[in-house]
């Protein structure tokens, strides 16, 4: 019988403690962020889709079209093409396409890149109803970059 009342008492106590905790939390400030109105700054290491690094001096990319990124990509989402041009040493990049729909953001392309010509962008709020919107032409993007 003592156990019966004891269990009722301790049970009630635990219930009241719970109520006090939630009521106390009620008076605290929300911790959430109202997304479309406010948005977070990404950390510098954030892995968005890749982009070509813009060299501030030359105003263009540093890609030597070696194709190591394409080779090392697990999902085969990079397509690049370099052509030989007269008067220029090495190949000149004419096409650099990224199919972001299959990219897993593992970073192996960036690791494989000897000249450090690609980097992660900080873009994260990408949304579209059209798959084609995620096929990026990185050569075009490097021109638009500030």
């Amino acid at each position: 019988m003592a156990g019966y009342f004891n269990s009722i008492l301790t049970g009630t106590k635990s219930l009241v403690t719970g109520l006090l905790i939630t009521q106390a939390e009620f008076f605290k400030k929300p911790v959430t962020l109202q997304y479309p109105h406010e948005s977070l700054e990404m950390t510098p290491r954030y892995r968005g889709h890749i982009q070509l690094v813009k060299n501030p001096e030359t105003g263009t990319h540093q890609c030597i079209s070696c194709g190591m990124c394409q080779k090392g990509c697990p999902s085969g989402c990079i397509t690049l093409k370099g052509v030989k041009q007269e008067g220029v040493k090495g190949k000149v990049l004419v096409q650099y396409d990224l199919d972001f729909t299959t990219c897993s953001l593992c970073g192996q392309c960036i690791e494989n890149c000897k000249p450090g010509a690609i980097e992660f962008s900080l873009e994260y709020n990408l949304a579209s109803t059209n798959k084609e919107d995620f096929h990026y032409d990185l050569l075009e993007r490097v021109k638009e970059q500030k």
């Binding site: 950390t43 290491r45 892995r47 970073g107």
Partner: peptide
């Protein structure tokens, strides 16, 4: 995220070390 760059599907370790 501040070290690995991703929030859920990490790919941070490499053979012989780290990214």
């Amino acid at each position: 995220e501040s070290v690995t760059g991703s929030r859920l599907t990490y790919c941070y370790y490499r053979f012989g070390g780290l990214y």
